[in-house]
C-alpha cells in the first residue's frame, strides 16, 4: 500500500504543477488555455534539444524551456488574446482562439521536432529499493523539484508585487484597474508565467516520461480535470485537484486492475456526481 500511496503522491506533484499554469491564466483572464498541453510539449522538446542533443546541463535546459515558453505566452497574450478580448464581448471567442493556438502549436511542434517519442538520459541513475517501496532516484528528485516549484510559485503570488497585482486582477479586474493596477501589463505577465510553468514542467518531466508531439491534447484534458476538481482559477484548488487525481489514479489502478480499464470510468463518474453537488469544485473562484 505504501508503494501505491507514494506513486499517487508523485503523480499528484507533477499533475499539480501542470495544472498551476492553466488555472493562473484562467484566473487572470477568464481564458481556458487549450494550448496548455502543447506548451508543456514545447517545453519538453526544448529541454530534449538543449540537454539531450546539445548536452548542456539539465538546469540550463529547464531555464531555456521556461524562458522560451514565457516569451511565447507573452506574445500570444499581447497580439492574440488581448486583441480578441478587447474586440469581442463573447467568451467563446477566446476559447476558439485558444483552440486555434493549440492546433497551431501542435503543427509547429510536429514540423520542428518530428513524430517520434523522445527521451533524455536519466538525470540520476539508480533505484531506491527497500522492503516497502521501490522508486527511482530521479523520480524522487523530480518530485521534490515539483514541490519546491509549487511552493515558490505560491510564495511569489503571495508576497511579490506582481503576485499581489495578479491576485487583485483575479479577484476583480475592474476594481484592480481603478486602484491603479496596470491590467495589460499584469495580464501579459500572468499569461507568460502560466506558459512558463507549462514549459518548465514539460522540461522537468522529459527526464522521466520523455515527450512526443501528440501528447499535448491529453495533457490539457488532464489539466482541465484537475482544475475542475479543485475549482477553476484557484491556485490551492489546482494543487488539491492534482494530488487528488494522482491519488485516485494510483489507488484505482491498483485496486481495480482486475476489472479492466475502469479506473478512469470511475474517476469520471465520481467527478460528474461531485460537480453536480459542487459545480465550482472544491474551492470555487476567485482564489482570494
Amino acid at each position: 500500500m505504501t508503494q501505491v500511496i507514494v506513486n499517487g503522491l508523485y503523480l499528484g506533484a507533477q499533475y499539480a504543477l501542470i495544472a498551476l499554469g492553466l488555472t493562473l491564466i484562467f484566473a487572470l483572464m477568464n481564458v481556458l488555455n487549450f494550448a496548455h498541453g502543447q506548451m508543456y510539449v514545447f517545453g519538453g522538446f526544448i529541454t530534449y534539444t538543449v540537454y539531450g542533443q546539445l548536452h548542456l546541463p539539465f538546469v540550463v535546459a529547464l531555464a531555456c524551456s521556461g524562458v522560451t515558453l514565457a516569451i511565447i505566452g507573452a506574445l500570444f497574450e499581447r497580439f492574440l488574446f488581448r486583441t480578441v478580448i478587447r474586440r469581442s464581448v463573447r467568451d467563446e471567442s477566446t476559447m476558439l482562439l485558444a483552440a486555434g493556438t493549440a492546433f497551431f502549436l501542435d503543427a509547429v511542434i510536429l514540423l520542428l521536432f518530428g513524430e517520434k517519442q523522445r527521451g533524455v538520459p536519466k538525470i540520476v541513475n539508480g533505484v531506491l529499493n527497500v522492503d516497502w517501496l521501490i522508486i527511482p532516484y530521479d523520480k524522487i528528485i523530480v518530485g521534490v523539484i515539483a514541490l519546491v516549484l509549487i511552493a515558490s510559485f505560491m510564495a511569489y503570488m503571495q508576497f511579490s508585487r506582481p503576485g499581489r497585482a495578479m491576485r487583485a486582477l483575479a479577484q476583480d479586474r475592474v476594481a484592480a484597474q481603478l486602484m491603479g493596477v496596470n491590467v495589460d501589463r499584469y495580464s501579459m505577465i500572468g499569461f507568460a508565467l502560466g506558459a512558463m510553468l507549462a514549459g518548465v514542467v514539460g522540461g522537468l518531466l522529459v527526464a522521466i516520461t520523455g515527450v512526443n508531439s501528440g501528447i499535448g491534447g491529453p495533457i490539457s484534458i488532464k489539466a482541465f480535470l484537475m482544475v475542475m476538481i479543485g475549482g477553476a482559477g484557484v491556485v490551492g484548488g489546482a494543487i488539491a485537484g492534482g494530488f487528488i487525481l494522482g491519488m485516485l489514479e494510483s489507488v484505482g489502478l491498483s485496486v481495480l486492475h482486475a476489472y479492466g480499464d475502469v479506473t478512469y470510468l470511475v474517476i469520471f463518474a465520481a467527478l460528474m456526481v461531485f460537480l453536480s453537488i459542487r459545480p465550482n469544485g472544491l474551492m470555487g473562484k476567485p482564489w482570494g
Partner: peptide
Amino acid sequence: TYQNDTRDFTPVLTP
C-alpha cells in the same frame, strides 16, 4: 489496461 495517453506507467505495472 492503460489509457493511451498515460505518461507514468508505475501505477499500471505495480500489480
